[in-house]
Design a protein around this nucleic acid. Structure first.
Length: 615
DNA sequence: AGCACGCCGACT
DNA sequence: GTCGGCGTGCTC
């Protein structure tokens, strides 16, 4: 009889031991029974072990799917670093299939791309360093370098992965890749249909699909000979998963590339501080079109000041387009009573609800709860609910009043719900059928706008004033990303509404982002990442008293540990979410081993651990 | 995470 | 009396 340690897929429980008469290789996917469950469940053989002291059950079925040694190793790392079970970590992967034969036919690609001198230098740097940060201004031609690098790897019979945040939002990348790699490239993200995913997997198994451009999950596809990972817009915080395992696909890419000596390109116009600290970088500043950008500041606090309206008006009268950016989604972020100052809160989550004018309703952004707009304040009964902080729909309405002869459209998650809608709005905009596009973060994410000569940035102060050590990085990179959308060909203007002109002006007009990264690194030394590690311990339970007790118990316990520091603790920013009360503890340490030891020692059903949390 | 067990209130 | 609520605890 053989005995095997087995990890149960998607289960938080520890590995168990099963027996079988068969000789089973490590990584094989098997089906087992568990005492309390009626159906067979999926598990992975981790290793062969000695006969245990307790009685074992038989392995029910051996499948033809298997996880490679590398997959098992990386999953081990994930379970250690991001604090989850091995079963949860390995579940991120799609296994290989033994039954499908690989098509060995060699295919050569010719991108026909000729790199500029600057780009050539960056490519040489890549060949020399293997893993590097492509710190390249908007419009300096990052994509050509990605394609060249992918082309080279594919022509050496290897595979490549290109990670992008929200790839479903960037159809132009898809087009460019398909032009060069044809049927050998596939797109992979959560919105790809089940049927298409099966096709793509089949293609990866047979070797016909050699490169995948995708979201986080593309990192876990069963490529036989992965040699390159490209992480586009590497500063983007959406690479961090917010469900268990809470891994960061960018950080994991760095880990994997270093461990297996793979090629790695992290690309961004506003490089993250972490990557800037960790990797050699090359700067690409020159843009194809000689763009001259002028950035103006406006310190008014009205939604649309006279100066802003004038700028928009001038731009439009010259036949050019305008984008207007806001950090919030709905019409107004907060509804505040003019008499008692309270806002209307969601009954399930302790957050203020947002106004959706089309539906005449208040909507909770976290749980989706919707209610009618109350006629008077629900707290004091006599005040009127007043709108604070403007949103996209409100600005859209205002602009339509101001420029009735112009076409104004909204570009946010409420408006753009499908791929087709996205493509059609982008098409309309790029063929000049829309004059002003009003939107949120979505506006800043890598789209090419050809005729935009003015970017209006509203509400950036609310990003800068958020209570996080990352606020400055977030606000400045966001501003630069949006500014990059204006004047891609020729002259462009940006007008920023802010009370913090000094900060933005210094790094935009007098200095640059590299300078900012260096000063920020100085500021963070000894206090924040990348110099030390931070983690958040989240406590959640329907019983508010119970969870508070648990929090207090752990605060006391953690404060006694000399190897880590309790930075803070208390109610979560959203105290009540989906009917659960939430508290959190933030800890940090320069000693990663000790930090992880502490995190692994926490055994509580109320707790979720978030390593390298996006504060 | 599931899933069962078990101990309490409300129904034919 | 038993149906079903979800709190607690276990899974080789």
């Amino acid at each position: 009889m053989n005995y095997y340690e087995v990890a149960i897929l998607k289960s938080p429980q520890e590995n168990l031991t099963y027996q079988s008469l068969d000789e089973i290789e490590n990584g094989t996917k098997v089906l087992i029974s568990l005492r309390n469950r009626k159906n067979l469940i999926e598990a992975v053989v981790v290793k062969k072990v000695e006969e245990p002291t307790f009685k074992c059950s038989d392995i029910g079925e051996i499948t033809s799917f298997f996880y490679s040694t590398e997959m098992l190793e990386i999953a081990t790392f994930i379970s250690q670093y991001y604090v989850c079970s091995f079963g949860e970590a390995i579940s991120l992967y799609t296994p290989f299939n033994k039954e499908i034969k690989i098509n060995e036919e060699q295919q050569l690609f010719d991108s026909k791309i000729v790199l500029s001198n600057e780009q050539e230098k960056a490519f040489e740097f890549y060949l020399q360093k293997k893993q590097f940060l492509l710190f390249a201004n908007t419009g300096s031609g990052k994509t050509e370098i990605y394609i060249k690098a992918i082309e080279k790897v594919l022509n050496e019979k290897a595979n490549a992965i290109l990670l992008m945040p929200e790839i479903s939002l960037t159809p132009q990348m898809e087009n460019r890749l398909e032009k060069v790699f044809g049927n050998s490239v596939a797109i992979w993200h959560s919105k790809v249909s089940k049927k298409r995913k099966e096709q793509v997997l089949e293609g990866i198994y047979t070797g016909n699909i050699k490169v995948v451009a995708g979201a986080r999950s593309a990192l876990f596809l069963p490529f036989k000979n992965l040699q390159l990972i490209v992480v586009d817009e590497e500063h983007d915080e959406s690479y961090k998963s917010d469900s268990k395992p809470r891994y960061n696909a960018k950080d994991l890419s760095i880990y994997i590339a270093k461990k297996y000596n793979l090629n790695l390109i992290l690309g961004s116009a506003t490089a993250s501080i972490g990557s800037f600290h960790k990797l050699p970088f090359i700067r690409l500043k020159k843009t194809y079109f000689d763009t001259s950008k002028r950035v103006y500041f406006d310190n008014s606090s009205q939604e649309l000041s006279v100066a802003i309206i004038e700028k928009i008006s001038t731009t439009l009268s010259r036949g050019n387009q305008v984008i207007v950016f806001l950090p919030t989604r709905a019409n107004f972020k907060y509804q505040i009573c003019t008499s008692c100052g309270k806002s209307v809160e969601c009954p399930y989550c302790s957050v203020s609800m947002s106004l959706h004018k089309n539906d005449l309703a208040l909507k909770c952004h976290y749980c989706g709860y919707t209610q009618k707009i109350p006629d008077s304040c629900p707290s004091c009964g006599n005040g009127i609910i007043h709108n604070l902080r403007v949103g996209t729909a409100e600005v859209e309405e205002r602009l339509k009043e101001l420029f009735p002869q112009k076409i104004v459209k909204r570009f946010d998650r409420d408006e753009i719900k499908t791929d087709n809608k996205l493509k059609s709005v982008l098409n309309e905009f790029n063929s000049n059928k829309i004059d002003i596009l009003v939107g949120t973060q979505m506006l800043s994410k890598g789209h090419d706008y050809h005729n935009v000569k003015l970017a209006v940035v509203l509400g950036i102060d609310s990003v800068l004033n958020m209570n996080s050590y990352k606020s400055r990085e977030r606000a400045l990179s966001l501003l630069i990303q949006i500014a990059g959308r204006s004047g891609r060909k020729g002259e462009g203007e940006v007008i920023v509404q802010t009370q913090n002109e000094e900060f933005f002006d210094y790094y935009i007009n007098n200095s640059d982002y590299e300078e900012f990264l260096k000063s920020e690194l100085e500021f963070r030394e000894g206090l924040y990442p990348p110099y030390l590690k931070m983690a958040k311990i989240i406590f959640a339970h329907a019983n508010g008293l119970k969870v508070k007790d648990e929090l207090d118990r752990y605060v006391k316990l953690l404060k006694q540990n000399g190897n880590i520091e309790v930075v803070g603790f208390g109610q979560s920013p959203i105290f009540k979410l989906a009917n659960k009360y939430r508290y959190e503890i933030i800890i940090r340490s320069s000693n990663i081993k000790e930090l992880l030891k502490v995190l692994h020692s926490i055994k509580s059903t109320m707790v979720t651990i978030d390593m390298d949390t996006n504060f």
